Amino acid sequence: MTAAALTGFFTGFSLILAIGAQNAFILRQGLLRLHVLPLVLFCAVSDAVLIAAGVAGFSALTTAMPALPLVMSLGGAAFLVVYGALRLRAAWAGGHVMGRGAEAQSLGAALAMAAAFTWLNPHVYLDTLGLIGAVSTGFAPGSERLAFGGGAVLASFVFFFSLGYGARLLAPLMRSARAWRILDLIIGVVMLAIAGKLVAGVALG
């Protein structure tokens, strides 16, 4: 079971490690030290639910609902375009300094953003329901497969907590408005690039 758990951990960690919209959002919130605990918990628990579904074999959902990938791709792309445009506007306007305006976003609004980044991202379904679900079939049903899923879930918790709270180590670099403009520019470009990739995938599909 140890081998299954380790395989699950490293599989899950490798899939989530890539820079994406959700990770960029958590990084920014971690730098602001705003609602970090509920946000990282939300993202990790959401991943856990999806991983459990993938390991349990619910990847057949996309087969039963063939229009789901298209709907998720278009909805996710629209959301990312809006959020990316907001970050680019913030980069252009400048004026943000660490600690300023941290009270502006409520917990509910932050969780709603996290939910959109998580559940409107079709890639998360590919990674969890698809890839992790597929890899899990290499282990015997029962304790081995549960160990694999547990390892993948643990990877999500380790990653999101490290990202959310580890972002504070970058705080000394984010004291200036210029640093925030650069960060917002990078995040905005990443968001628009991901949105473009989603739309391109729909067009090619």
Rank of each mutant, 00 (worst) to 15 (best):
Q29P: 00
Q29C: 01
G30N: 04
G30L: 03
L31D: 07
L32Q: 06
R33S: 06
R33W: 01
L34F: 07
L34C: 09
H35F: 02
H35E: 02
V36T: 01
L37T: 08
P38N: 07
P38V: 09
V40P: 06
L41F: 10
C43Y: 06
C43W: 07
A44K: 05
V45Q: 05
V45N: 05
V45Y: 03
S46L: 04
S46V: 02
S46M: 04
D47T: 02
V49F: 08
L50P: 02
A53H: 05
G54D: 08
V55A: 13
A56K: 14
A56L: 14
F58E: 06
A60F: 13
L61T: 15
L61E: 11
L61F: 15
T62V: 15
T62P: 08
T63P: 03
T63D: 15
A64Q: 14
A64I: 15
A64S: 14
M65S: 03
M65W: 07
M65P: 00
P66L: 01
P66S: 03
P66V: 00
A67I: 06
A67L: 07
L68R: 10
L70V: 15
V71E: 08
V71A: 14
S73Q: 02
L74E: 05
G75W: 13
G75H: 11
G76M: 00
G76C: 03
A77H: 02
A77Y: 01
A77F: 01
A78C: 13
F79T: 05
F79P: 12
F79Q: 07
L80F: 01
V82C: 10
Y83S: 11
Y83P: 02
Y83G: 06
G84W: 04
G84I: 05
A85M: 12
A85P: 00
L86S: 03
L86D: 00
L88S: 13
L88T: 11
R89S: 13
A91M: 13
W92G: 02
W92P: 00
G95M: 09
H96Q: 15
M98W: 05
G99E: 13
A102S: 04
A102W: 00
A102R: 03
E103W: 10
E103Q: 14
A104E: 10
Q105F: 03
Q105S: 01
S106R: 07
S106M: 06
L107R: 09
L111D: 10
L111G: 11
A112D: 15
M113E: 12
A115R: 08
A116R: 08
A116W: 07
